[in-house]
């Protein structure tokens, strides 16, 4: 058992790290002769709030759809129908191997236009879900593979039906393994949603770009934008930590 360091030592270290980081940024600003002034941002508070909400909505909607897509792709990969299995594997490989920005342009302007998807919010959620779904499929596949085969044989031996095996054994074991990774993926979705600004969805990044065209305070605007994203992802990482602890409590043998 590692002894936790003394409170005094801890607080000194926190202060030191803060001084180093803030000092570094401050000196950098001095070197380029820039004085930060956030006061102009106040006037845009309503639009920023709208953008903040839009980012959360896009991220939440994409989380749900990408979970569905990821589960289907993870299952399809293991399918005995080769067409399905190949399709899932190629989907995961291509999506994970190309930049989100390219995918957004491709799916929005080519596929979206060809098939008449002209609601950009719907398109945004679908494209982001398609992207994140490939990562979630890999998380789920890894989780399934990490479950010991003995657990399934045991389920058979005690006379569980396949449906009950899934509900009582596979699902809880899988969740315990992948929940931390899934919440981490949610933080990625929040950040990745910033790229949806290129198809003019009024989320935080798009709003910030519009504000910048109005007040010319680029540094301050993007600094603040980063802070807002950090608030969201930090909240998610707190949840992750909580879930990890819950998981450990039940199964420290991993």
């Amino acid at each position: 058992m590692k002894k936790s360091p003394a409170l005094f030592y801890k607080s000194i270290s926190v202060v030191l790290v803060t001084v180093i980081l803030v000092g570094f940024v401050w000196i950098s600003l001095v070197r380029i002769n820039h004085r930060l002034d956030f006061s102009t941002l106040w006037a845009y508070k309503y639009r920023l709030w709208q953008g903040f909400k839009m980012t959360l909505i896009m991220a939440f909607a994409s989380l749900l759809v990408s979970l569905l897509l990821g589960s289907v792709a993870a299952m399809a990969q293991k399918s005995r129908f080769l067409v399905l299995s190949y399709l899932a594997k190629i989907y995961i490989q291509i999506i994970r191997g190309t930049p989100l920005l390219v995918q957004i342009f491709f799916f929005f302007y080519i596929i979206g236009t060809a098939w008449g998807v002209d609601n950009r919010y719907l398109a945004g959620v679908l494209i982001l879900s398609l992207f994140e779904g490939a990562y979630i499929a890999e998380i789920i596949r890894g989780g399934l593979e990490s479950i010991d085969e003995s657990q399934f044989e045991l389920a058979k031996a005690v006379g569980l039906t396949p449906a009950k095996t899934f509900r009582l054994v596979t699902f809880p074991l899988l969740m315990a393994r992948i929940l931390p990774a899934l919440t981490g993926q949610f933080a990625s979705i929040i950040k990745d949603s910033s790229l949806l600004s290129v198809i003019a969805i009024p989320e935080l990044t798009q709003i910030t770009q519009e504000i910048s065209a109005d007040n010319y305070r680029l540094f301050e605007n993007y600094f603040f934008l980063g802070l807002l994203y950090f608030v969201m992802t930090f909240a998610v990482s707190l949840i992750t930590r909580h879930l990890e602890r819950m998981y450990k409590h039940e199964n420290s043998a991993g």
């Binding site: 003995s150 045991l154 058979k156 031996a157 054994v169 315990a176 039940e250």
Partner: peptide, 17 residues
């Protein structure tokens, strides 16, 4: 058939969760 039989495994014969 399985429900009429008790099976004890060599190791890892309990649900870990």
């Amino acid at each position: 058939h399985r429900r009429t039989i008790g099976f004890v495994f060599q190791t890892k014969g309990l649900f870990e969760h």
